[in-house]
């Protein structure tokens, strides 16, 4: 399993693996928003938590179809399915690799971009914490969506349509905890709910995703 994780990580960091693409996309989205809504720092401060969370979510979406597509095309997914480790573990590892290459960099980059949007000082810590807690759920839910569409030739657009509604609770709890944190309100409830959501996704969705992959490999 560790070997699989290492392999996926090195594959995605290598050229053409899409590493950094999500980050660049996140950067562009956050830069474009002020052009759209105007440069008033009050307005930007108000919408910063939401913009950062939506931006991170979309950046995450960008690299989802790569989770299984390459392995499906060259047949290594068939090998993994018949390997001695359970397919559920393979799915979990692949989601973890996706998180390390996408969710983690996004979390680290978010405070820098938050400066551009005039996020209130109190919000920075909550922003990082909420993204740290929430992005694993994004990767895991995304892995499930990718598993559903892995056999399809033009699955990319469908993948977004399937995954985005599933992201709604994560987005709500994540952005809500940053918003509350920035305004100095208590953030325990949304953060706990967010953590619960992530844990439940990580615990249960590998089974659903593995079932979907088995159907697609049949």
């Amino acid at each position: 399993m560790i070997a699989l994780l290492k392999r996926d990580l090195s594959l995605s960091i290598r050229a053409g693996g899409g590493f950094g693409l999500g980050l660049a996309f996140f950067l562009i989205v956050t830069i474009l928003v002020p052009f759209g809504v105007g440069p008033q720092s009050d307005t930007l401060r108000l919408i910063a938590p939401g913009i950062l969370w939506v931006g991170a979510l979309l950046a995450c979406l960008l690299s989802l179809d790569r989770i299984f597509a390459l392995d499906y095309e060259d047949g290594s997914l068939d090998l993994l399915a018949t390997a001695p480790i359970p397919l559920e573990a393979v799915v979990a590892m692949k989601a973890l690799a996706h998180w390390v290459t996408t969710g983690l960099p996004l979390t680290l980059a978010a405070p820098v971009l938050a400066v551009l949007l005039n996020l209130q000082g109190a919000g920075f810590g909550w922003l990082v914490l909420s993204l740290l807690l929430g992005t694993p759920a994004l990767s895991m839910i995304g892995a499930f969506g990718a598993a559903l569409t892995v056999g399809l030739k033009r699955g990319g657009l469908l993948l977004s349509l399937l995954v985005l509604p599933l992201y709604v609770p994560t987005l709500i709890f994540g952005a809500e905890s940053v918003r509350r944190g920035a305004q100095g309100m208590a953030t325990t409830t949304p953060l706990l709910l967010l953590a619960g959501l992530t844990l439940a996704s990580v615990a249960l969705l590998p089974f659903a995703a593995a079932a979907a992959i088995r159907v697609n490999l049949r």
């Binding site: 509604p165 599933l166 709604v168 609770p169 709500i172 709890f173 809500e176 409830t189 949304p190 709910l193 959501l197």
Partner: peptide
């Protein structure tokens, strides 16, 4: 499951 979750998340939101 997620639709149900969203229902409560939206209430919370």
């Amino acid at each position: 499951v997620f639709a149900l979750l969203s229902r409560y998340a939206v209430n919370f939101w």
